Amino acid sequence: MSPLFLASELGSAVWVDVYDDWSLAPEMRRSVRLLARAGYERLRRTRRSLVITTNSLYMQHMLRPARAHLVPNGVDPRLGSYARGSDETRRLIMMGNFFPGRTDHELLTQLALSPAAEEVVIFGCSEEVSTRLQPLISGRPVRLLGKRPLTEIARIVGSKTVLAVPHVVSDYTVSQDLMKVYQALALGTRVLLPYELFPAGLGPDQALALGPGVKVDDVLDGAFARGGLNPAEVDAFIANNSWGRRAQQVRELLDES
């Protein structure tokens, strides 16, 4: 899966899966980015008959002329049975790793201070995010927390909870298929993110877009008004996007090769 092993493993592999464009990853050392770039180039030139999968359209197109199949990320079905909250607080949550080159601090600040939300909770808050927000949130219903397991996050997911993804839009972030989006939907909460970062398989009934000409407060209002996914929608999403389903897709590709 790591592009750093393409040079050593490509000769014997029957299935190669690549995710995120490591050659552009701002959190990686320059030497890692260069090795990744060389690995992708080797994969593009390979004449071996092997199955190549990617989890985003960007990665699928980036590997041309090699033929790559789109197999998006999946979700653990157990998330659907996690105990969740039952309140109707208009709660906005953000979670994950926040770092330069991926986090859009201006968008994150707009989201955190939006009057549309009755409460904002940021999980995995980095020192940089905390330093930027602390002077602004006095008296505001904003909680800055460290990383928490999904079981704990699920307990505050009520009927009007929304997950926001404050990422910059770049080739690197477009190359990603955001795992937190799948996790949030499996927990029953809708997602708010820049429209360029929409996972390929999601529709407007599951995620709402931020983009040019759109006011953050208005989109948040709309997301809270719609509320979370109902149990039938959660079950359908998990059934169509479970890791078991993804494994089945890969198995079918291997059988066809």
Rank of each mutant, 00 (worst) to 15 (best):
L136Q: 05
A184I: 01
L202R: 09
L92C: 05
E119F: 01
R48A: 12
L187P: 13
M59Q: 08
S175T: 12
R246V: 11
E128C: 00
V121W: 15
D217Q: 03
A223P: 06
L24T: 00
D235R: 15
Y172M: 01
R102T: 00
D17T: 11
E106S: 15
T131R: 15
Q60H: 05
L6V: 06
E27G: 01
G146Y: 06
S170R: 12
L163D: 07
A112L: 08
S86K: 03
T103E: 04
A117Y: 09
S159M: 03
K160E: 13
F224K: 13
R37M: 07
P3H: 05
S257L: 15
T46Q: 09
A154H: 00
A186L: 09
G139S: 06
E152Y: 02
V142H: 06
L144A: 14
M28V: 04
V219N: 03
M179E: 10
S81P: 00
L253G: 03
Q249E: 15
V71W: 06
L187C: 00
D177Y: 14
M1V: 02
R132G: 13
E252P: 08
L35Q: 15
D218E: 14
L107P: 01
G101I: 08
L10P: 03
G139C: 07
T151P: 03
L187R: 07
L229M: 13
V16H: 02
A209K: 11
E196N: 10
F224P: 06
G96W: 00
P204Y: 10
L144V: 14
G203T: 14
L197H: 04
I93N: 02
V142P: 10
T46M: 06
A112C: 08
A66M: 12
L253T: 05
T131V: 08
T161F: 06
V250T: 12
G188D: 13
G96L: 01
V18T: 12
A13V: 06
R30K: 05
P212A: 01
